[in-house]
Amino acid sequence: MHELTIAYNIVEIVSRTARNENAKRVDSINIEVGKISGIEIDALKFSLNIAIKDSLLEKAIINIKCITGKARCNNCLKVFVVSDLFTSCPYCSKYSAKIIKGKELRVSSIDIQ
């Protein structure tokens, strides 16, 4: 359940920003999670429900943008969609590829009052 640590980190980042902005409350939070970032979305949602208790985020709507994984083949340099870390290149069948998208784990913005 490393998602709980992630959830507390989100609360920490958002609370710090909201305090600096003298916010009364946080209405919504926008988070980006890569589909191959190693985070289980359901576990993250479960953890967030625990982590936001008694914080400025307690009533906030949480928007999670799930970012599709993409990789560039080290052999033929073509870019392709990946849903795991061990997909072979659909163009040349080689297994060596660099992940270029899908490992994001980021708080992008918040709406405050």
Partner: peptide
């Protein structure tokens, strides 16, 4: 849009694991 009249949007763009 999730914005209402009183709302302010704050950009953060912070890696959730940045503290670690």
């Amino acid at each position: 849009s999730f914005e209402t009249a009183k709302n302010r949007e704050i950009k953060i763009e912070e890696d959730i694991l940045s503290a670690n």
